[in-house]
Design a protein around this nucleic acid. Structure first.
Lengths: 190, 190, 190, 190
DNA sequence: TATGAATGAGCTTTCATTCAT
DNA sequence: CATGAATGAAAGCTCATTCAT
């Protein structure tokens, strides 16, 4: 009996994500994924139950990866502004260096597919940001707003800029990143 | 060339948008659209060249509609803050009352399909916002930032909240809308 | 718009029955049927909902045909023995001249597929035989047995012989037919 | 060659027969058989050459079992009628108590698969019935008919009734069995 | 204009079988 | 002996599109 080959699973996942971001969900077929991953179509079904299962697992995988990347170097003891900036910069960096992951999750997030998976944030990551926000409120730094609004201001603008960066509509360089963070900070703080 | 039956064209468009937002691009076929619009598959090809043309025209149609909705009641002579708020509130209302249009353009915008159409903003609308932004800068109200950053702050957070509203993750009521606009205003202004 | 072509429907049906009797249910695929009928695989789905629907309709079609053949020349006013013999000989002739129909229904009848269609006998035919049997009982010709037993004796042996005839295990000629009918008559009558 | 684990061979055979009678030849795959038998698909190929070999061996196995069951308690020295009745009742009992075997061989017998195996009757059993028939003829009990006709009358009706019994169309109870045998006896004897 | 019929190409998935352990 | 991994081929079916009316 052969062992299940993690490299093969990874090859399939990567091929799938690559294809989806390049040609879109609608045109990404199992055969194309198989061809791109250099396996037989039937082999995909050794690692994934069916197409939906494959897509869902890809999404969860990418979400975890994103969450992990955001917390690199983060520490509860950091001052609020430093902590927030670190996470925000981690996010920017990840977004810019992993365009495929970014594009995939954007596409998935905005498709009806998302309704069939657990939409919840990755646990550890979610807790860290949540605690940071609460701490900032308690220290009188942040305005008294619900967390959903905090998140919308914190994430959405940079993601929009990131998309435009990848489209070639602008360059999200260090300077623009700093300027963006400053605006966000001004929005959130008293 | 003008086609006789504009109602039929509209039926096809609506059926397509409805299906795409409900079951997604990948599962929306020409036959399903035809069935939902109560026409023959062949009839779609009387009004649209092919599937890609249909999707592109849908996107342009929706974009125009959105742009028109944003400018309702707008007037160049309004004070900067009043004008900006009017547009912003128009956007919120449209987003909340036209969830199908909203979901469709989000899905389209985040898919590779977008790369094959003109990404440019609708003319009249774009000019209005652009001029408002420049006026605000000249009057010393807005910070000295590029328009792309202005747009990201202005649009992205409310769109994120709108998505969550439609998902049932939160309720974007009058109060939350006001709070959001205040944060955005704080971010943009000196 | 083209008309639905009854010749095409017939071609598909014939090809399917021919294949099933030749290579069996398990090896008869939609593509093979299509190829044998000289149509595209997709065309089959214009005339039949899916494979199961095709098979069921084939069975009903064949059953009707068989029933019709059994009653050729039959008349209520015939004496019991003459009527019974006429039907029986009709059955033999049909069985021997339409081996494909015969083999198909035997195969279908003995497969689990039969459980998903209406097993009931074809109306007109069933009534005729039923009435004949009752008349024979009333006239004191037939033994007092349930109709199921009457049917088993009446049909089963000749069908078994028919099968062997088609297999080449024997020749079901006029003489053997007569001998068989005499045995059946002896079994049924007082 | 003798394989170690005859239980495993039996498990595979039983699973296969069970599946075939339940869902039919066409839908019975090697993987499904493997799953039902709690072995790996590859294991089936340790015991059987391939799918066709498996099916053929199953048929031979079932045929032997049937033949053995028919002769239980049979003895050459029994009077003709007693001997015939014993065999006939053995057959009925076996048919009613082993519906799976019965349904499997009916299905196999009526499919083109049968053409690829030896159709001949099981040796010992065939001889016994053959001799009984000849003895009956010599003793002036049976009509002067070919053995094929004798067999058709002897087996076919009860098998038809057995099928209907398993379908729930009737109940083949002791009484109906007796009545059936009497008709058969009347048919065969002078 | 409008349509259902027709189709080759392609879809997702399972097939029977072999491989490597 | 026994197995899960692996696979090319084929399954049933739907696709976007064109044809004939």
């Amino acid at each position: 009996m052969r062992h299940k080959d993690d490299a093969k699973r990874k090859a399939i996942s990567n091929a799938a994500i690559e294809l989806i971001t390049t040609i879109g969900f609608a045109d990404t077929s199992m055969s194309k994924i198989a061809k791109a991953a250099n396996v037989s179509p039937a082999t995909i079904y050794v690692y994934f139950e069916n197409k939906e299962d494959l897509l869902n697992q890809l999404y969860l995988m990418v979400k975890e990866e994103n969450a992990r990347a955001m917390l690199i170097g983060y520490d509860d003891s950091l001052p609020v502004k430093d902590g927030l900036k670190l996470i925000w910069e981690n996010g920017c960096r990840h977004m810019l260096t992993q365009p495929t992951n970014f594009s995939f999750s954007e596409q998935f997030l905005n498709s009806p597919l998302i309704n069939r998976v657990n939409r919840a944030q990755s646990g550890e990551y979610f807790q860290a940001v949540s605690q940071l926000f609460e701490r900032g409120k308690k220290e009188g730094i942040f305005k008294d707003i619900p967390q959903s609004l905090f998140s919308a201001i914190f994430y959405a603008p940079s993601m929009m800029l990131g998309k435009q960066h990848h489209n070639g509509q602008l360059v999200l360089d260090e300077e623009l990143q700093q300027a963006t963070f400053e605006l966000i900070w001004d929005a959130l703080t008293i």
